[in-house]
Write a protein that binds this DNA or RNA. Structure first.
Lengths: 190, 190
DNA sequence: ACTAACCCTCACGTAAAGGTTAGACATGTC
DNA sequence: GACATGTCTAACCTTTACGTGAGGGTTAGT
């Protein structure tokens, strides 16, 4: 019975690509462009700790390790991390994602995998729509409350506001928005 | 830098008013209708524990106690609890609400209080709008991904799906939706 | 009086998603 | 070789919103 929580938003802002450190190992044709964890962090906006965590959860895996055991990732890791981020944004928990990933990898045979993927996304699409409607209702309520408050100082311009906390002016029309009523309800102790 | 999380939704469903236990103490005019914590719980869908918690956080306070120290609430408590719930739905944490309440009570003088209330709601209204836009983008992405997947089995009806995990059919048009690409990115260990 | 429901006050547990040390190597640069 | 950074592992810390007993009174009804 957990209710919806809509936390404050703040998009990570991919901190614009930094200087490629050890340029490119000119000579070796293919395995060029290996990134280390900090690079991933910079480009995805996630922290190193977060990326390590994803690995602990088997959501991500370094392509190799350096001699000194540094993790080395291919560029696909970027895709993966961003993907994780998007799923999170859509409301998946990391453990949800774990499941999704496990399912995908277990069904090495594709058809079921594709089906699953479609299922997951379809379901989430519906949830997202529902959530948006819900938000819209909240928006209306907020708007209504603000309108109500405006009324309050329209009918009693400016000055009388100082008495407004106890103002019964609106009490006659019993449609005090809940968002406003709640403020006053349940007064503090004696 | 916390990102948005949009948890699964599920509205509490106010479990339709139960039988008024000790009917109404016929005789005593005013202080009738005192509820005890379980009643509040039933009517708001919150748990008793939750209600106790709200009290610990100074968001709610019983109007009185019975001889045996049972908490007794007036009907305004219902309003208050529902109000708390709505604020939570809008993304306020309980500690946020604590602040709001404290602010409201401290400014016993009303004008600043009203202003504050308006401020809070105005801000939240904007956040909510932003969030909705964000969700809309996610919705589009989901839709796009699903469309993409449909393409996948339109061009290769049915059977070839079994090879689709490795299918490069779409790789030519480099617009693999991130939501789809992420699935495949970063293959598991060797 | 007896019983079934309630309620009281601690107080510790939990899940999520990392944050934050700490102590110790690794790398790249001058 | 010396420095400044960057990484490694391991392990404990943090916050949120309650959940879950334990141990023990309270109420209402019969």
């Amino acid at each position: 019975m957990s209710r919806v929580r809509l936390p404050l938003l703040s998009v990570p802002q991919p901190p614009l690509a930094e200087d490629r450190k050890h340029a490119d190992n000119l000579g070796l044709a293919e395995p060029a462009e290996l990134l280390q964890v900090g690079d991933l962090a910079k480009e995805t906006g996630k922290t190193v700790r977060a990326i390590h965590l994803y690995e602990e959860l088997d959501l991500l895996r370094p392509r190799a390790r350096s001699k000194g055991r540094y993790r080395l990732y291919g560029p696909d890791a970027l895709v993966r991390i961003r993907w994780i981020g998007k799923l999170q944004d859509m409301g998946f928990s990391l453990t949800d994602i774990q499941t999704v990933v496990r399912d995908w990898e277990e069904s090495g045979s594709a058809p079921s995998a594709m089906t699953k993927m479609r299922e997951v996304y379809t379901k989430k699409l519906e949830e997202t729509r529902a959530l948006r409607r819900r938000l819209q209702r909240l928006e209306h309520e907020l708007q209504a409350s603000l309108d109500y408050l405006d009324t309050c100082d329209v009918c009693e311009p400016d000055r009388i506001l100082s008495a407004c906390k106890a103002c019964d002016h609106h009490e006659c029309d019993h449609t005090v928005p809940e968002l406003v009523a709640g403020f006053r309800a349940n007064p503090s102790p004696s």
